[in-house]
Design a protein around this nucleic acid. Structure first.
Length: 653
DNA sequence: TGTGGATATTTTTTT
DNA sequence: AATATCCACA
């Protein structure tokens, strides 16, 4: 999120003047657009966020009820920041704008209207790993795991199923196009996909894809609801439109169906989510979907110095699709990006550490320094070094709080209590009990589903050595289901039940306990367990915690981030590490051209985050040619393909 | 039926 | 190099 160089306070000037002086001509046109469809193509650092923020302020000032503006962004944090900024420009009314991600919007909508599709308001959301576990259960149940040789693993299966949902094509098509090695297994995989869908429907469980597709179905098949929602939100604003998929685009269109006031903002060069079904061509199809649409292009870059911009322009120049804009800046001065080639991975971490220390000494605030990389583990070495040298950092992307096994355990208790039909959660918590394996867990989960909680304390079970634990489960669950108590007390009840199981299961239990405490702390701020679960599942906890103590603490923290998670952000100094063929571009993308194109855009996104200093670090990767490092060779091809590289960068080390 | 140890895979990125 | 899955034994 770019910071406002000059937030314009409201001094009661005539509205036109105020907005005009804070914006360039193109931005102004977008902000004051009278109504109807509007597409803003905004290059990196051209004030995309600024334009959206001013648009909100403009609409509110013109008398639009803020609650009837819907701002769909990539993260909830992004939406919140935009609303805060709009409030600074205008007034607190802007805080009341309805904002969030497509997924969180879909969640709320489906809680309210899901009954029309046969879902109770208490449906649970299965995150990616829940979904994988479920698919795995189904696979085992259908007996496909001992088929011929290589049946895809749960992860691959889920990728296939999810892709089919995101691209709205049959599983068979996905297999034919992306997984030819599994094509002869199509009937089996389709069977799994069907069973999976059926299960979710029956048990009131939704995965991430369901949230979108069911929301779309609701809007499509229930005209009365569609009309009602469309009139609730008179203005639809969509950020990062290049990373929306077909379903999201449909939702956007349905939301605008009554009034046509839809504003989409994006940059086709920065589309990096095709693995989730996003297609940058979506943005080009926008005018087709809305023939009377106005298109505004933002080309003046306010973020980077000329040397950085020259380099990034050269990077994107090699894209196969030619883009319709050439960025320029009026910012003079600056230094060329630095290209370094450390002799090993360790040397790379050391190099970055030393440079970070130097910039800190030069007075660059820690939070203006970021290290970006392709995959979560790329920062491992560096993390160790930073710790050793007492440099605090925050990391975005990669392994998340909510993915830790002990957190998932606790959440499974809450989900199971909320939705007793959610056999995956039941399965998970029952397996925690010593003496209970997959078979017993499955049986117990089924009988709870059929007969209710009493099934846990039935006569035959009393003899088992774990009868006491089941009794404890029963009591805790009964208590949770009864409601009434505040969320924090429910959480405490779960933690008390869970603690002994935690200690039995993990040798490093003491290390994990603090996480449970912070979970308890988060719980205090919620009115309902549903809301807590939804937030935890639909946004990363750094964001969920944002209101808490983090902002201040983050000030003196260097940022480590995957490139994907760096979207929309900017820093004074940016390091891109592992700029090596096989890492960036990733070896998984080397097979097809579209893959390479997307990797290039990824590199472009990373490089365009830099305001003043950009470091391109390509370590010599050594070690045995394992499966892993097989494709890792020299420096990234994206460097070699730049003809005048020598002129654009300064070589070091 | 559960558990622990041996053996094959396989790892991007995220809501 | 780490993890998921499989297998044999208790």
């Amino acid at each position: 999120m770019g910071k406002d160089p000059s937030p314009i306070p409201n001094h009661g000037q005539a509205p036109g003047t105020r907005f005009a002086s804070a914006l360039n001509e193109a931005q102004y046109r977008a902000v004051t657009h009278p109504g109807g469809p509007l597409l803003v193509i905004a290059g990196a650092g051209t004030g995309k966020t600024r334009t959206l923020v001013y648009r909100v302020a403009y609409l509110v000032e013109r008398g639009v009820d803020p609650r009837s503006i819907l701002l769909l962004t990539f993260t909830r944090k992004a939406a919140q920041e935009m609303m805060e900024r709009a409030s600074r420009i205008l007034d607190a009314r802007c805080e009341m704008v309805a904002g969030g991600t497509f997924h969180s919007f879909a969640n709320l909508t489906l809680r309210r209207y899901g009954s029309l599709l046969g879902y109770p308001a208490s449906f649970t959301i299965a995150d990616r790993s829940d979904a994988e576990d479920l698919v795995n259960l189904i696979r085992t149940e259908l007996g496909f795991h001992k088929n011929k040789a290589r049946f895809p693993k749960k992860r691959a299966l889920m990728n296939i199923i999810s892709r089919a949902a995101n691209c709205q094509v049959p599983v068979g098509t996905v297999l034919a196009e992306e997984y030819p090695q599994y094509e002869d297994l199509a009937p089996e995989i389709e069977k799994i996909a069907e069973t999976y869908a059926l299960y979710k429907q029956e048990r009131a469980v939704m995965d991430y894809d369901d949230l979108l597709t069911k929301c779309r179905d609701l809007l499509r098949d229930h005209p009365d609801v569609r009309r009602r929602i469309s009139w609730t939100y008179e203005h639809i604003l969509i950020d990062e439109f290049q990373d929306t998929n077909a379903v999201q685009a449909e939702i956007g269109a349905f939301l605008a169906s009554e009034h046509g006031n839809i504003m989409a903002v994006g940059d086709d060069c920065q589309s990096i989510y095709s693995f989730r079904g996003a297609d940058f061509r979506n943005i080009m199809d926008f005018p087709k979907r809305f023939p009377d649409c106005t298109v505004v292009t933002l080309e003046e870059n306010y973020r980077s110095t000329q040397p950085v911009l020259s380099f990034t322009n050269a990077v994107i120049q090699n894209a196969r699709e030619k883009y319709s804009k050439q960025l320029f800046t009026r910012t003079a001065g600056g230094t060329k990006p630095v290209y370094a080639r450390p002799s090993s991975e360790i040397a790379q971490a050391l190099y970055v550490l030393q440079k970070i220390q130097k910039h800190l000494q030069d007075g660059v605030p820690a939070h203006e320094i970021a290290v970006l990389f392709r995959a979560g583990w790329h920062s491992n070495d560096l993390e160790v070094l930073l710790n050793k040298n007492g440099i605090p950092f925050v990391k975005y992307g990669g392994m998340k709080f909510i993915e830790a096994a002990h957190i998932k355990d606790v959440l499974a208790f809450l989900k199971a209590a909320l939705n007793p039909a959610d056999a995956v959660s039941w399965h998970r918590i029952l397996l925690l009990i010593e003496g209970v394996g997959p078979t017993t867990a499955k049986r117990l989960a089924e009988s709870v589903h059929k007969k209710g909680l009493e099934a846990l304390v039935s006569k035959p079970l009393q003899k088992r050595k774990y009868a006491a634990t089941l009794q404890a489960f029963h009591d805790t669950m009964t208590r949770l289901a009864a409601g009434r108590e505040p969320v924090s007390e429910k959480m405490e009840a779960v933690l008390t039940t869970y603690q002994p199981l935690l200690e039995a299961k993990y040798d490093d239990a003491p290390k994990r306990t603090p996480d449970l405490r912070s979970l308890a702390q988060m719980a205090e701020r919620y009115e309902s367990v549903e809301a807590l679960l939804a937030d935890l599942t639909l946004e990363s906890p750094e964001q969920a915690l944002a209101g808490e103590d983090t902002p201040r603490r983050r000030k003196d923290h260097v940022v480590l981030s995957t490139i994907h998670s760096a979207k929309g952000l900017e820093w004074e100094t940016v390091f891109i590490i592992y700029l090596v063929d096989g890492h960036l571009p990733s070896s998984y993308a080397l097979n097809d051209d579209d893959g390479i194109e997307e990797e290039r855009r990824l590199f472009y996104v990373a490089a365009t985050r830099a305001k003043r200093h950009l470091y391109l670090v390509a370590p010599k990767v050594q070690g045995p040619a394992s499966f892993y490092s097989l494709a890792t060779g020299g420096p990234s091809r994206f460097l070699f393909e730049i003809g005048r590289l020598g002129e654009l960068v300064r070589r070091e080390a």
